[in-house]
Design a binder for these strands. Structure first.
Length: 201
DNA sequence: CTACCGATTGACT
DNA sequence: GTCAATCGGTAGA
């Protein structure tokens, strides 16, 4: 399985394409405690225009400045005393991103479990804030360059399960606006996807 | 300075 | 299904 980081060109595209193609890729996080990570099974796109749910829709602030930067960097922000991790897409000054909502733990599972407390494997990273806690992602990594291949990055990883999986699409979870936009992507029937069951199948 | 709020989660009916 | 804890960012006095 390759651990080579995805290129700038991969991220420098329409967030809908990036969100769709990130499914099945390997999210990796290296710390002094070791490497942890897993297979991305659920993402959401946030658009630079026509999307009131995007944090950048009301202009640039200190909090969302990463989204206005180059593609391939992290956008990490705090919410409800937790964190969410996004990858920035499209060129500089085009503020769009893809939220990574869930992974299937594969690397360093014991480490992830330790960070989350004793939880079942399906509860380790099935949600954007759970994933950040399991991988020790916080605002210190806001703006981090994901193409460097260290600390935090994403690698392509094809396997038969992903190739054969059906991709589902739905409204985004939790947002208070733009429920009409089907910008959430997930692997259908995958047990590591977050949210209510009716949104998984 | 205070007040309000959210791309959440987990506990509870 | 409902609901409250939680806290940094932001707007407004």
């Amino acid at each position: 399985m390759s651990r080579k980081p995805l290129s700038r060109e991969f991220y420098n595209r329409d967030p809908v394409l990036v969100a769709r193609e990130l499914l099945g890729c390997l999210l990796l996080r290296a710390t002094a405690d070791g490497i942890g990570g897993g297979r991305i099974v659920e993402t959401e796109a946030y658009l630079s225009s026509g999307d009131p749910a995007c944090h950048a829709s009301r202009g640039q602030t200190r909090k969302n400045r990463s989204m206005f930067g180059r593609a391939g960097h992290a956008y990490v922000y705090p919410i409800h005393a937790r964190y969410c991790f996004n990858v920035v897409t499209e060129p500089e000054d085009v503020p769009s991103a893809v939220l990574v909502r869930a992974i299937e733990p594969q690397q360093g599972v014991a480490l992830l479990r330790q960070r989350r407390g004793c939880h079942g494997v399906h509860e380790l990273a099935s949600g954007p804030a759970k994933l950040c806690e399991a991988l020790a992602i916080d605002t210190e990594l806001d703006g981090w360059d994901l193409t460097l291949g260290r600390r935090l990055w994403i690698a392509a990883a094809s396997d038969a399960r992903t190739d054969q999986a059906v991709v589902g699409r739905s409204a985004r979870i939790g947002v208070t606006s733009a429920h009409d936009l089907p910008l959430r992507f997930y692997l259908k029937d995958d047990p590591f996807v977050s949210g209510p069951k009716r949104l998984r199948a």
